[in-house]
Amino acid sequence: MIKVENVSKRYSKIPVIEHIYLTVSRGEIRGLIGNNGAGKTTLIKCITGIYKPDDGSVLYDDEKIYDNPDVKHKVGYVSDNCGYLGRYSVSGMVRLYENYYPNFNKEKFNTLNEEFGLSLKSKVKNLSKGQKMRLGFMLELSKQPEYLILDEPTSGLDPVAKSKFMEILVQEVEKGNIGVLISSHNLGDLEKLCDTITLIEDGKVTNNTNVDDLKEQFVKLQVVIPGGIDSSKLNLPNIVNVSNVGSVYTIIIDNYDKMTEEWLKSKGAELIEVIDMGLEELYVSSQSRKGAEQNEKMA
């Protein structure tokens, strides 16, 4: 299990992440979500042992990763730019991995490469971003890691490669019982892949939960109010967002309960229907709710 305990990291004394706690068990896929500059990549670099946390610890099965080759053997990391060593060719990178990782499975790499189709002679620096991500994914999976850390793994991938990537990832997690941490802005993908989600804002974890719990917290309703009503009148504190087309209103509500239902009916609602909401919409709703709360406080 990956245990991130009270991790803080500062750049020139400016805190970037503070008191982060999270865990990733083997067989679990955890998503890491946050705005730009929230500290996701810094956290991932601490988790992969590139950065040393200023406070706290990152443990893999109770062993620290920083400067610890024994732990690094079992961790795969696909970074957001997958630069690797630019001068090396793809086959050179394979040789490098064969040299450093005794578990590296070249056959597996070749099988994956049949799917992703990279030329072994190409230099890493000449690959496009998507090709680099494919290379990173293939190399790290062929290492047969126990844990896999992915930072924006689908950025730059075309839809076909993305779908292959997701399919292979799920298969590998099931087959190899790998623990996966994925940071991504593509919440649609995360929703399909992840069991659990960690929300990070301004360097702090604000939510550490599973996707279903998060979905239970926010509810999207389709409400019909005959004759219509001014949207500003739908102003309960837990209403996050209101939009309408004619007399059909779409309302996102935090902690929807019986009282809220009664209140809506009192406003003339005749048909109230709960509809499915994606992770992206959920995230945007939670963010806009926070924004509104902050504005209120400031006012």
Binding site: K72, G83, Y84, L85, G86, Y100
Partner: peptide, 16 residues
Amino acid sequence: RNQTEREFLATLPIKK
């Protein structure tokens, strides 16, 4: 030569 390469080398299983 660049940050990406340095960071990649830092992930290799060898003590600094």
